[in-house]
């Protein structure tokens, strides 16, 4: 068994030095990564997941994504993950970090107790394709089912449709969704029930149900009233904790349930 060196003190000393000199402190950290190579044979053959540890030197300001890049660029080019914007707006790099869903580009290593190995796994409940990459199609299929587009009725106006700031405020929170799947793949119901739409699809339904310009709320609510819909939610709040955009996911789901219960939007 690995004994973790006492790096906590070193990290703190380094931080103090950094503040004084402007030099960014560095320290060593171990990343324990869940690997999966669909083309391999032998012990780590196709589909057989296994753990691999990498030791990397990181700066105190770095993100988990930076550490993954350091491994990929300097140690093992075959380490595979998706990423793009690297600052939490594109939704490519949701992964399970120390048991919690996060974006690798928003998780700072210094905030993760770097004295112990940081575990990194693919998000759960979607088929793993290679290392940290999962098949996103089932996720987007649920998204498409809730008709994620404005469906107004009546004539198309010449200018903009009017909407007061208060009307807009009702669905503002759920417009922030970046479809990263962190919420859906943190949901225990989603893990065990492949039929459940999952929180992200409900968030995106909410975004239209409560938009004053939309006239298809009840069509969407009908879909969500289905056995695969909102009633599956057990209100465990995993989704809210996982959302890298700070969306009040459980609250949004509750509002959808309330609309179904009361018949009012």
């Amino acid at each position: 068994m690995r004994t973790a060196p006492a790096k906590g003190a070193a990290t703190r000393d380094a931080a103090a030095k950094e503040a004084a000199t402007g030099e960014v402190a560095t320290f060593e950290v171990v990343l324990k990564i869940r690997r999966n190579n669909p083309e391999a044979s032998g012990e780590h053959g196709a589909g057989a997941g296994y753990w691999q540890e990498f030791t990397v030197t990181v700066h105190s300001t770095e993100r988990v994504l930076d550490a993954l890049h350091t491994i990929k660029w300097e140690q093992d080019g075959s380490l595979t993950f998706r990423r793009s914007c690297a600052h939490g707006v594109c939704g490519s790099d949701a992964m399970r970090i120390n048991g919690r869903n996060r974006l690798a580009c928003k998780a700072l290593i210094k905030d993760l107790n770097p004295t112990r190995p940081i575990t990194i796994e693919p998000i759960q409940g979607l088929p793993v394709l290679k290392d940290l990459i999962v098949d996103m199609e089932p996720f987007f299929a649920s998204y498409r089912e809730i008709m994620p587009f404005l469906m107004p009725s009546g004539d198309v106006p010449k200018r903009e449709r009017l909407q007061s700031p208060e009307q807009r405020e009702r669905f503002e929170d759920t417009t922030k969704c970046i479809l990263c799947a962190a919420c859906t793949t943190s949901c225990p119901v989603f893990w065990t029930d492949g039929q459940y739409f999952g929180p992200a699809a409900i968030v995106n339904a909410h975004r239209f149900i409560f938009d004053s310009r939309d006239d298809a709320a009840w069509e969407r609510l009908e879909i969500l009233n289905d056995k695969a819909g909102v009633w599956k939610c057990r209100t465990t709040f995993n989704c809210t904790d996982a959302c890298p955009r700070g969306i009040q996911v459980t609250e949004a789901i509750s509002q959808v349930k309330r609309a179904l219960n009361t018949g009012r939007i």
Binding site: F149, L150, P152, E160, Q163, P165, R168, E172, T175, D211
Partner: peptide, 8 residues
């Protein structure tokens, strides 16, 4: 008209 939630 496509639904973009502009500030108002």
């Amino acid at each position: 008209k496509m639904g973009l939630p502009f500030n108002r």
